[in-house]
Write a protein that binds this DNA or RNA. Structure first.
Lengths: 347, 347
DNA sequence: ATCACTAAGTTGAACGATCAAATAACGTTT
DNA sequence: AAACGTTATTTGATCGTTCAACTTAGTGAT
């Protein structure tokens, strides 16, 4: 038998196409009796509405685009995994779906926007990893494509809370500040920071948190600040230099770096009774070796991003509108390193 | 100005809509001169074809669905990341896009198929992690939905190479067999295997490879076979019991297990000069600690899956058809453990 | 009996592309 | 110059919905 459509179903039932459409999209408009009759016929015939026809008419695809970031490091990458998951589920709950695309660079990402909008109807985009002078947000704003970003718009001059596009971010600085505060409470004064080279927004923010905590405590430790590219070996080397400079504890911008640092402390037999290395992102590996780490509420962030984006898309009035800009607080996952853990992840 | 369509563009250019359509879809049919004129006008007007209208007419969405598996373990999860990436890129090259969805169980996955087919037009699905008695493949076949799976159809009675649906898989058994062979060559005879409880298809296949290698060498080692659920701690405990039983080397069904095993060997100071623990999947963490591991050609697998699936969808004749069933050989990434590595990942 | 209102259902007209068939333009051959 | 075969372009119909406007019937107030 031929594939069922609204018309074919309507004919066989003796009602109009619109009635069937109403059963699907606005059941309250149909008399319960006929509704049941139609619903039964739908199930019977295996009728499936054509999404294309609906999209053509309603001008909405219920599809959101998201870029799959290049795999950099299996350790930190796992948080992206969680994010993608939460995002998919949140979108699903609001009847949206996620369309993947991959791009090597930001420029490439913009090219992909163009391409995707040409061949696919996307209602909006989710951005991750915003940074200074981000070309992508500029392009999207200019072309009036709806989007929301995980990451605030980093700018030296403008207040992120007055930005034109919705965003959700985690207050990394508050996290490192809290972590540093904890180490201070435990009696450490020579607390180092291992982070990334300046300019990355999120990285600078994390460094600032560490600095703020020390300043508040009246401790001067600017010389205990190291900037390296991410990775376990780099973290170990950085920690070695910090130990040589007298550091007794470190806060790190990532778990990869922290894992290296932990290893450095252990191999120098400088491990105190209480945890003295704190990582960032609370990855599974951190949990496995008992590394304390700053945990981002990533699932919550994903839900908020979807909420704020779908709200923009639904075009509702501002009444009852969720906040367009959200800065979520991280939490500190405190752990006691396993007695054997951390010794020699990679020298 | 209003949004440009084929008709509005055609009018302003003094040509017919079909000519513009041809410029986009079959440029060779249009006189170079007019083609340039049209192309210029397209760029000028910022015209974007409506994907929905095209889909409605052509009855193809160029969209493939893929389920995002639950995050289980940051270590083994990273291979899924690579797979998803490669799949996205391969799809992109063939002008297909990937639509994500998540499902907690297989039953749930089938429900999602239903739902997705109702609200979204998907041309097909990519399945991962096939297993014995897989409900999903059965449902998809019954409803005549095109799909391809990463993972052969596991069955005790039927030959996977005569299965009705296309699949691509990696010959895990060949990998563990080769790995075991290498350990035999190095003089080990008491070689253990740490794998998962029977029934998982891929897991059983890996165990079989180990067994085949030992049988071929005339070694009997059935008592050195341990089945545990995946994880670093479980691997460590399993290795301890194997060491107690006299094992001098182990092959593992995953890097998580291998990491635990490496740790167990080190903490018992039983580390020989040559690597005696071999993992599976060649994850970034394995690379970081210098763990030898069986590497799946995951990018190649992804490309092959897309190729075979898109071919099915294009409906071309069997001539020039790629193989519907592909079993790819893994490779062994041999590494020398870092002197400090592996000591106490988690006892 | 009239009017206003709501509820239930119908109908014509889009939405914006592609397919298939028809026509126009053009150089070649007879 | 007529007939022919390509190539270039146009036209009519169609894909399957939803929107907006319309009919019809039923309810209750005036």
């Amino acid at each position: 038998m031929a594939k069922a459509t609204l018309v074919s179903l309507a004919e066989s039932l003796g009602v109009s196409r619109q009635t069937i459409s109403n059963v699907i999209n606005a059941p309250h408009r149909v008399k319960p009796e006929t509704r049941l009759r139609v619903e039964h016929a739908i199930a019977e015939s295996g009728y499936r509405p054509s999404a294309a026809a609906r999209q053509l008419r309603t001008r909405r695809s219920m599809n959101l685009g998201i870029r799959l970031m290049p795999v950099v490091d299996g350790i930190n990458g796992s948080i992206l995994d969680r994010f993608l998951h939460a995002l998919t589920e949140a979108a699903q709950e609001d009847s949206y779906r996620l369309t993947l695309f991959s791009a090597a660079t930001d420029d490439d990402e913009v090219r992909q926007y163009e391409e995707l909008l040409n061949v696919s109807d996307l209602d909006g985009f989710v951005l991750t990893g915003t940074h200074h002078g981000d070309q992508r947000t500029a392009w999207l704003l200019e072309n009036e494509i709806p989007f929301a970003s995980f990451g605030r718009p980093w700018s030296d001059t403008e207040d992120p809370f007055s930005s034109l596009h919705p965003w959700v971010d985690v207050d990394g600085g508050a996290g490192t500040q809290q972590a540093t505060g904890l180490l201070l409470d435990q009696g450490h004064t020579a607390i180092g920071f291992i982070g990334w080279p300046a300019g990355s927004g999120a990285g600078d923010d994390r460094r600032d948190g560490w600095r703020r905590a020390l300043q508040a405590a009246g401790v001067f430790a600017d010389q205990l600040d190291v900037a390296v590219n991410d990775g376990v070996p780099a973290g170990a080397r950085a920690a070695e230099s910090l130990i040589a400079a007298g550091a007794t504890a470190v806060v790190c911008a990532s778990d990869s770096l922290a894992l290296g640092a932990l290893s450095a402390f252990r191999s120098q037999h400088r491990a105190p009774a209480t945890p003295n290395v704190i990582g960032f992102d609370d990855t599974p590996v951190a949990a496995a070796v008992g590394l304390s780490s700053i945990a981002q509420p990533i699932e919550e962030a994903a839900r908020d991003i979807i909420r704020v984006l779908t709200h923009t898309l639904s075009g509702d009035a501002d009444a009852g509108r969720p906040d367009k800009h959200l800065l979520l607080p991280p939490t500190l996952a405190q752990r006691v390193p396993h007695p054997l853990a951390g010794n020699g992840w990679l020298g």
